[in-house]
């Protein structure tokens, strides 16, 4: 019973097509294109591995081993370049989502490709060090995928349309009210409130942040100290209510920090180990050619 205008400005239909195809996650990007690429390369490399009979035995030094090693090393370098791609806002028809999608699936395919490259020969040497570091990077990456899939919703639910800045401002405003409300209290009671106000909200370490366990929370302690049954209009009740609000606001901030930390913590392994991997990989390649 209606029509939309035909005449769209030039270029709009192209933009629209691109967008219509774009509401999909990095995992489902282009109908799992990179998953298929990764799976097929794993199957093909495995099939070749088990069907050919290289002499004296399968390892990195055979023609097939060199082939897999070259593919693997090339992949590792390309995968590491995501860090540059992400930060370099150059022009052009690239999409970081497509890169992430390929990064995830091709990175996982390294488990198969690199393992086949080793010919299952592991030992206490620089070659195996590179392999172990790579597996560490991949393992942390797998955690990253899980975190990226499972946590955003929780982050959004906890935020309740507030920005980080708004949460901190809300806390500040509660603190100001608490300071005024605590004026009529006696010295000892006021001290518990002051202790709550003075405690550094953000100074907690990584572990606390990740586990969201703040055993020494002065606000919680103060709330305990004001747990009596007060008159609705009394100064104590006002302070208690404000402490409860402060606690709730702190909880939201802490949950926010926890989820953010969980979304980021793996990068503290993923990236330094990648750098170590690149170094070990260089050592591995040089030593292989040196001792050829």
């Amino acid at each position: 019973m209606a029509s939309v205008p035909d005449e769209k400005p030039i270029g709009a239909s192209a933009i629209e097509q691109r967008r219509a195809a774009d509401h999909s996650s990095f995992l489902t990007h282009r109908k799992f294109l990179w998953l298929w690429v990764a799976l097929i390369s794993c199957i093909v490399t495995s099939a070749i591995y088990f069907s050919i009979d290289v002499q004296p035995r399968p390892n990195g030094g055979t023609w097939y081993g060199y082939t897999l090693g070259t593919i693997g090393a090339g992949l590792i370098v390309w995968l590491a370049l995501l860090g540059i791609r992400k930060r370099n806002m150059s022009e052009g028809h690239w999409s970081l989502k497509a890169w992430t999608s390929a990064h995830v699936y091709l990175g996982l395919s390294l488990i198969v490709i690199a393992t086949l490259h080793t010919g299952f020969q592991l030992g206490w040497n620089v070659h195996t060090l590179a392999y172990v570091l790579m597996m560490l990077v991949i393992l942390s990456g797998i955690y990253g995928i899980i975190a990226y899939v499972r946590l955003p919703q929780a982050l959004s639910d906890n935020r309740k349309e507030m920005t980080t800045e708004m949460m901190v401002e809300a806390l500040d405003s509660i603190d100001g009210q608490l300071r005024r409300a605590a004026q009529p209290l006696d010295r000892h009671e006021a001290d518990t409130v002051i202790a709550a106000l003075e405690q550094d909200t953000f100074g907690a370490g990584m572990w606390r942040r990740l586990t969201n366990s703040y055993g020494n929370c002065a606000t919680a302690a103060a709330l305990d100290a004001f747990s009596g049954n007060y008159d609705a209009d009394s100064a104590h009740e006002r302070v208690r209510a404000l402490l409860a609000r402060r606690k709730a606001q702190l909880d939201q901030i802490r949950r926010h920090m926890k989820i953010k930390a969980m979304l980021e913590v793996w990068l503290f392994i993923h990236i330094p180990v990648t750098i170590a991997l690149l170094a070990a990989l260089t050592a591995h390649i040089i030593s292989v050619f040196y001792y050829w």
Binding site: D22, G92, K97
Partner: peptide, 17 residues
């Protein structure tokens, strides 16, 4: 070239126009 940067730079496909 390539269109809106915010969308191109989203690593997970969350940003859409």
């Amino acid at each position: 070239e390539g269109g809106p940067s915010c969308v191109r730079a989203c690593p997970t496909g969350a940003a859409i126009r």
